[in-house]
Nucleic acid binder design. Structure first.
Lengths: 203, 203
DNA sequence: CTGGCATATTGACAGTGTCAATTCCCACGA
DNA sequence: TCGTGGGAATTGACACTGTCAATATGCCAG
């Protein structure tokens, strides 16, 4: 049979199959439910088979996370490329992360669980840096005098987005829109931050 | 003997003893090492004794987290009370969270692990709200016209501090000081955010 | 065709959270 | 004073986890 089981003793592309099963498990049941054994079961393979492709649970989760960062990066690049230069690009960056995170909350949570990830992993580092650097580059290219180090602002935006999404996912946000302006809060916050970045006008 | 063991069959104040042991375990080994059984061992009691005081692991961690929020609240109130009104109070708030978190990194991490906490717990909710409301009240009392909802700024400051601390704990911050001004980055970020909050001067 | 080697299986181990049954002993009412 | 009820702690068990070692399988290079 080759419908649900596999025909041969060797799987053929178990690594990919495990990543797929793991992602489905993650989306469906959260990080808790994503055990090596459950992933192996879902892929129709014995409980110790994954060891050939991932050193341990950290290894599996790390590979997942790297992929997710990559997906967000793609989304961010896409959104930013159609936005006019300037502040709108930063909002686009934020929206990429926010959209992805609201669509896949458990993936978002995994990304920041550094205790579960192999933080020294090269692929993970590259994937994460690619995203962060995209943001940093945009800030460096803003082309207006700023009061502080671009990296300071990158940290701020990065943190803001992370915190904002966390609060929304946890249901800690009364409303997603600013009560004063009616705009989505993430726009508001970034606007405030960036306009605060201007060198104060001579008075 | 009453030196290391206890004299009586009943412990007397096992709840408190468990919280103490759990805190020590947490500080020493992180959340991973903080199992119910290890906590019971450290308190010199059988592996199932804690069930009489905490429904399950979540219950234990939730009680811990509520206590930690309380400690931070105390620190924040203290620091803010000696700061001049205005932006300095917000910086004081941030410094309270930052100082506490750098001193007890594992406690900080626990506070945001909502998957491990009983998020509906009343005590936890009160402890967390007390801290957040302290920040919100300060923003509402700033006494200058702001472009946006105070809650929007509360979310921003809350997120900024959380993100900033996370990055510092993870070693992802190249330098703690702004390259341009030499000031600690958290001051810088908050300054930018709050000055961006001003209603733009008529031009 | 035949080794060698990557891949997959099976079985075992220690550790976990959580339950049920049991033992202990303190405090309260008769 | 004497039970005795019930909270507190113990013991033992279960299913689950990650990880390791030993074994079985089958593809591919020589």
């Amino acid at each position: 049979m080759s419908k649900s089981g596999r025909a041969t003793y060797h799987h053929g592309d178990l690594r990919q199959a495990l990543l797929k099963s793991a992602t489905e498990l993650l989306d469906a049941e959260g990080i808790e439910g994503l055990s090596i054994r459950a992933t192996a079961r879902a892929a129709g393979v014995s409980h110790a088979a994954p060891v050939n492709h991932f050193a341990d649970r950290k290894g599996l989760l790390t590979a997942l996370a790297a992929g997710f960062f990559g997906e967000i990066w793609g989304l961010a690049v896409e959104k930013m490329s159609v936005a006019p230069p300037g502040e709108a690009r930063l909002v686009a960056f934020a929206e990429a992360m926010i959209d992805y995170s609201l669509a896949h909350p458990h993936r978002f949570r995994l990304l920041w669980r550094r205790d579960l990830l192999e933080v020294t992993d090269v692929r993970l580092g590259l994937a994460m840096d690619a995203l962060y650097d995209r943001l940093l580059a945009e800030l460096e290219g803003l082309g207006k005098p700023m009061r502080f180090d671009p990296e300071t602002y990158a940290i701020a935006v990065w943190s803001l987005v992370h915190g904002y999404v966390s609060m929304r996912l946890d249901g800690n946000l009364v409303a997603a829109n600013d009560a004063r302006t009616g705009e989505p809060r993430h726009r508001t916050i970034i606007a405030a931050l960036i306009s605060g970045a201007d060198v104060p006008a001579p008075r």
